[in-house]
């Protein structure tokens, strides 16, 4: 288990919901999980995240779909659809 973690970053409204801007998250048995699985776990800890369908994921600073595999050491970001420009 040692080191089998991911870094999760929260932005904007999502950071307000979680009350934190980043945290380290342990992967059970150190195995990769999908974005959907991670979102389900996060929603248990932060019920305000629901519904999670509209939330966007980035892994290592690239946009990914929710079925993307996430492995130990990844930088995962969770945020609303972007509104810049």
């Amino acid at each position: 288990m040692n080191g089998a973690t991911i870094d999760i970053l929260y932005f904007a409204r999502v950071a307000e919901l979680t009350g934190t801007r980043s945290e380290s998250w342990s992967l059970a048995d150190g195995n990769p999980i999908t974005g959907t699985q991670l979102l389900s776990q996060l929603q248990q800890r932060y019920p305000g995240l629901a519904p999670t369908d509209r939330l966007k994921l980035a892994v290592n600073q690239y946009h990914v779909r929710h079925d993307q595999a996430i492995k130990a050491g990844d930088e995962v970001a969770l945020f609303d659809p972007v509104t810049g420009g």
Partner: peptide, 27 residues
Amino acid sequence: IMDALKTRAPFWKRETLRSGERLWVEA
């Protein structure tokens, strides 16, 4: 570039209205 930026570049806007109300802009 602008159309792609609007939908892909990770920026988020929060408005503060004159009433004092704050709201995250929705995509």
